[in-house]
Design a protein around this nucleic acid. Structure first.
Length: 286
DNA sequence: CTTCTTGTTACTGA
DNA sequence: ATCAGTAACAAGAA
């Protein structure tokens, strides 16, 4: 479940260690994980290098030479792990089975660099993908995504305009990448909790204060999660011995049947909203 | 055995 | 046009 903060953590780590290293070999272990033909994918990457790594919503965008881009989407269980020797230098979204014996059963692609370091793409459920695109492809991604919630352009008045005249369910709206890019199930639930708003509410039912609170909550939750290096980085230490642990700061996600840690009155409930498991406090979210 | 999990797209029907 | 709902993708956990 890598969302904006997890993807941001991954690219921040990778940018420090992988730029300009020459790719000497590409192993595609699961063909369908690569969009487009495998042969052109390999042809473009071979002897190429990463010039810069950025993010748009949950998409990882790696600039290559020759105006090409390697785009990676982790979907639900994708991981990127960069190893130098036996040392994990940068990585993403490790789950319980934290096993650096790579490649393993879930490894679908390996990039080998000339300095012997390796980048592994792992994906248990195989929903993620890698793709080489050009400037035009970049435009296509841009066109389907809404604003970056941590960008300067995401002002309160921009947020108000987004909501205007819509009657949608608030959670479905926040999950929709074409309005705001990067939120997923975890941070939507956390933002709504922070703003004291029930996930079942509709946009046209929000008053001015609630709208403002939600706007601030989204930014606050995302910033804090990035500070703690995301939620799903549980059991690994990176090269600097840090552990990402926003999971310990989650207020509602995964807290069902627990007493609400804010009001100490409600018990966190889990229901289904917009097709997703949704957690909230029935006492202090209205 | 069944059910649930999550990101995204595609599709149906209101 | 807007929106809700559901299936699909795949593998593993409970």
């Amino acid at each position: 479940m890598p969302e904006l903060p997890e993807v941001q953590t991954i690219i921040d780590d990778l940018n420090k260690v992988i730029l300009n290293k020459k790719i000497k070999k590409i192993d595609i272990l699961l063909s369908k994980i690569v969009r487009g033909t495998n042969s052109s994918f390999i042809k473009i990457l071979k002897n190429n290098s990463f010039q810069n790594i950025s993010r748009r919503g949950k998409y990882i965008i790696i600039s290559l030479a020759n105006n090409r881009f390697l785009v990676i989407h982790l979907r639900m269980t994708g991981q990127i792990i960069y190893l130098q020797g036996n040392n994990l230098i940068a990585g993403g979204h490790s789950d319980k089975s934290n096993n650096f014996n790579l490649p393993n059963r879930q490894t679908h692609l390996i990039l080998h660099f000339t300095d012997q370091s390796q980048l592994f793409y792992n994906d248990q459920r195989q929903f993620g993908f890698l793709e080489i695109i050009n400037q035009k492809g970049l435009g296509r991604i841009e066109n389907k995504l809404g604003i970056e919630p941590l960008s300067k352009g995401f002002t309160y008045s921009y947020f108000q305009d987004l909501l205007k005249d819509k009657k949608r369910n608030i959670k479905a709206f926040l999950l929709d990448q074409k309005y705001i890019a990067g939120l997923g199930n975890i941070y939507v639930d956390e933002s709504l909790f922070l703003a004291h708003i029930l996930p079942t509410r509709s946009l046209d039912s929000l008053n001015k204060k609630e709208t403002k609170d939600l706007y601030l909550a989204i930014k606050q939750v995302l910033k804090l999660a990035i500070k703690y290096r995301g939620t799903t980085f549980n059991n690994y230490k990176d090269a600097h011995g840090r552990q990402g642990n926003f999971i310990k700061r989650l207020k509602v996600y995964g807290q069902e049947n627990q007493k609400c840690m804010r009001c100490q009155k409600g018990v966190i409930k889990k229901i289904r909203v917009a097709g997703r498991g949704t957690r909230y406090c029935p006492e202090c979210q209205k």
